[in-house]
Write a protein that binds this DNA or RNA. Structure first.
Lengths: 192, 192, 192, 192
DNA sequence: GATGAATGAGCATTCATTCAT
DNA sequence: CATGAATGAATGCTCATTCAT
């Protein structure tokens, strides 16, 4: 790894990145029982350094969560154009999110218990919103999603999916199937 | 109140019931910050007594959760027969569950963070399973649910619904709508 | 000491007294660098026990300070009647207080830096006030103190004396001399 | 302000003065909770620079205290000659000192808790001593102070006055009154 | 059975000081 | 000379659980 000498020069927040990476790793493997001191030790820095960059345990978790959002956002942008339809675009996104939560169950639980279900702050939030709106619009336009589908529906389903995937409540692929079926245009507007 | 003298009569597990009731109350109002000592004090017993009946905090939470399951089970039995169709029976059940979690958000969070998503143990589990199977069977029989709908689907959706309702992720009534739409018989076999 | 077995029965706050005694000792010898854990260890109890009786470091210091006040109060009552005059009664009191602060310099500093100059709360305060008033009244009545001497003067001088004695600013006996001379009846009302 | 470019000219100890000034300000306003980093930030320098000039927090406080002594010394020199008598000269000095401590209570406490009651080192000490001796000598010579009054008395009373003024123990003007009365020539040799 | 005092490992956070650049 | 990122020992406090009475 990029750690030539013990105390490089700390070019800007090189350490910050390292701490973040290490923390994500530890949370993923050991969950909430990870202590700030563990993070520091594993990252090879003093605990003070961890606190310089993340003044609170919660701040650290927030940073990790934001990083995750960014990864998902990146993936979503790439995939968005390749999908055959609006619904398939949503499906791909959901599958990715489900996988992220399955792969990082412990981390997911830490984020959930620390931040509740707070949406990301600032620019990320705006980008997320924009992306979601785009997907929904595409689906309603090409007729692969119900006309009344909204961003809020998507947001809600993502939250639910995260729970299903991280808590191992059932087969989250199946959850996506059912859910997307529920978002299809209603053939029979008056359900029997 | 029923505490005339210092030691009323120590009737069997009168205390157990009292502790359980008080604990549910406190968790509902103050969430996870409730301490075992609070429970004891509020119940008017020593903390040792609490531990006699519930050897662990987790055990106490489990007992509360089971009680909840029982209430839901009771409601479900009553409602089951009145519903117009299998799907409507499921809807009624889900609506009830959503309401329970909305009304007891803090308690819901405590249960979630303490027990993860562990299903109830013992007899309750069996009864729950039986009830669920019955509902699903009725729906597939009367054609108001997809033929491939299973108990596991229901279990998963209940878990997801609980999250949506307790974390306030969105409108859980809407969640039920989408979800039940997804469980309808497939008019268009084209979707995977 | 009255510690037959390791965990006697903790008759009421036997432990409380022990912790208080030990804490006073340690503060007297090592001053502010004493940690709560030290107190617990030295007292032979768990740190939780210390916190049970004194929920805060400040609370512990307050208790020690109050104890000191009580000792002084006790001494003052005894001495009050034996003194030849009001002024001599005040002198005896001041000498005692000076001695207490000289003997417990480090403890005095801890009390000062923790509580500032807060007067004792509750009943002790009232008793102190009463005693002081009595002394002043006697002195003004028998003509050994200035007619305009007040309790507030005494309170202020005690505070100043405490500083002189604990900080070793000078000879506190001399401070008392000067101070009492200043409280004598004014022979010459218009000072030259 | 004198910070045109990033590094003005680095004139000798221009920084030292700035840090000193800023630190005194901060201590006066926020007391002991001021951190070294606050001082650096407010002074617009790096924390390393603060430590270059004052190798220790205590050193910084000492420098501030010395500065104060110098101000008082300056005032004393001016006033000394104008006073009507030795006693009045002492009174004027004490009034000034009381005012300084009242105006800078928080700073006073910081100095006290950091330095205890250490007298200033080096030349300032000598000047202070000389001034005090002069005042006392004048008072004993013109008969407005007791013949046995000494510099140590004055030093002690100043220390006590500082406590009264900074801790708000009582009316420090009254303290000066009583104290000076105690330093008057003894009309009645009866008292010890 | 009941009681509640005692336990003590565990934890997040602070801040004066150092030193590589 | 200046900078400020890094350091890490120190600290007060919590709370589930135990056990002597």
């Amino acid at each position: 790894m990029p750690t030539p000498s013990r105390r490089p020069r700390a070019d800007a927040g090189r350490n910050r990145a390292r701490v973040l990476e290490v923390a994500a790793h530890l949370f993923t493997e050991r969950g909430g029982e990870v202590q700030m001191a563990d993070v520091a030790r594993t990252a090879g820095v003093g605990i003070g350094t961890v606190y310089r960059h993340f003044p609170t345990r919660q701040a650290l978790v927030e940073a990790i969560a934001e990083q995750r959002f960014l990864e998902i956002l990146g993936f979503a942008r790439t995939m968005c154009e390749k999908a055959a339809s609006g619904r398939e675009a949503v499906r791909t996104l959901l599958e990715h999110i489900g996988q992220v939560h399955e792969d990082g169950r412990a981390l997911s639980r830490v984020i959930e218990s620390t931040l509740g279900n707070t949406a990301p702050r600032g620019p990320v939030q705006a980008e997320l919103r924009e992306l979601g709106d785009t997907l929904i619009a595409r689906g309603t336009a090409d007729g692969t999603l119900r006309q009344d589908a909204t961003f809020d529906d998507l947001y809600m389903l993502v939250g639910a999916l995260a729970t299903v995937a991280r808590a191992n409540i059932g087969d989250w692929h199946r959850f996506i199937d059912i859910t997307l079926a529920g978002l299809e245009p209603r053939t029979d507007p008056a359900s029997p």
